[in-house]
Design a protein around this nucleic acid. Structure first.
Lengths: 227, 227
DNA sequence: TCCGGATTCAAACGAACGTTTGAATAGTAG
DNA sequence: CTACTATTCAAACGTTCGTTTGAATCCGGA
């Protein structure tokens, strides 16, 4: 009977995913042991292998649970804005907003544990393990294509390869900002209480990314000068 | 006798550091075992503990070997430029160039293994292990202070906290760019042969960072609109 | 009530980990 | 050559890891 969804909808499964999200974020994948993880989830050591098959499969499940929905939300916001705009092209600022807004709104929701996931995600973009990055890349691919197309339409005069690099830079800035919101204290003794004012952070980040995306094109003189 | 510096100047030590740099970059700290590491270095398994004391101490040594020199080079370049400028203030572009130039020049040098280190460094900024990030932060602190002061002089009209965040964003963009120069292929089927044209990358990155740093200040209307 | 699949549990497995040990070797100063 | 220190080496240590096993327990449907 696959009616498990009615009464306890994978209660243990969910608790394991939540615990994994938090511990993976705090300590990383390798440094989080199954014993530590199942203990935090209030489950038996064997529960992970029973419900997910292996630790690697659990890692994948942690990302699939949230990332599909996140990227679907991004694409939906883009669709909605394009429908509202009718024939007019979207502004770069709107497109950026659709991309970073989803992440930053999730960071505010400390209830459902979305914050843990966002920080975990930011870390994982540059994870040394190739299969993990491959998974992330695969889950991101559809949204990436969609946003690339939107930017190309909004910035028809920008060379294709330049746009790709600027998207790369923007993506990196977002990833790092999400992953290392505590590192900013290293730059300055920043008061930690306003670290998570997501609206202010969104305004700051959007202003930075927007300006970077629309930066004047470097000319070959710059390249020669840098040599 | 501590004349070891004449004939074989810590030959084994150096080989271990080189191997560690490469393997840590490829697989991360935890996923790199001492057996794998010493095998690649052509040394005995016990050599790491003999020369460094422990695996953690080796990790620290890997960063100390390069990071002190890197930040000294950054500060020296800043000093030189300020001396050349005399009473005039440095331009933001010059300061950015001093910061990213050192990293990007190191990525070209595939001979001494600097490239491995740069990519390893980019990854480590967002390493989940707190002591590792603390070490990096500590090694970076002097240069960070120096650059913050330089930016404050170049941009006296910019609010202090805004500048800190923009430095944070710039730092993140650089870190991610260094760490994930292969991820750009996920955005588009980028030809891998020009991935490491460091001069072109420096021009692109500098243009992006410069525009982001000088972005118009967001006003409170943006924040309200984003809500 | 009793059955049968789903889930939980305690216990154990073999493998791999970082580290330690004590003997063997290399290389130099006296 | 001898004595001594620095280094290398093979072997083993105890621990922890992810996973497996087989019995115990839960629980809805006949």
């Amino acid at each position: 009977m696959n009616l498990r969804a009615i009464k306890p909808p994978h209660e243990t499964r969910t608790r394991i995913l939540d615990a994994a999200e938090e511990l993976f974020m705090q300590h990383g994948f390798e440094a989080t042991s199954m014993r530590q993880l199942t203990a935090q989830a209030g489950a038996n050591l064997a529960a992970v292998n029973y419900h997910f098959g292996s630790k690697d499969a659990l890692i994948e499940a942690v990302f699939r649970r949230r990332l599909d929905a996140m990227n679907a939300a991004r694409i939906a916001e883009l669709d909605r804005m394009e429908k509202d705009a009718g024939a007019r092209a979207l502004s770069p600022r709107q497109i950026i907003g659709a991309f970073v807004g989803v992440s930053l709104r999730m960071i505010e929701d400390s209830k459902s544990g979305g914050r843990n996931f966002i920080r975990l995600l930011g870390r994982t973009y540059s994870d040394p393990q190739k299969p993990i990055r491959a998974l992330i890349g695969q889950l991101y691919a559809p949204a990436m294509e969609r946003f690339k197309a939107a930017f190309e339409r909004a910035l028809p005069q920008m060379p294709r390869d330049e746009l790709i690099w600027r998207m790369h830079f923007m993506f990196g800035t977002l990833a790092y900002t999400l992953a290392a919101t505590d590192t900013v204290q290293l730059i300055a003794g920043c008061k930690p209480e306003d670290r998570y004012d997501a609206r202010l952070l969104e305004a700051r980040l959007t202003a930075f990314l927007h300006a970077g995306l629309l930066a004047p094109l470097h000319d070959s003189a710059d390249v020669k000068k840098a040599a």
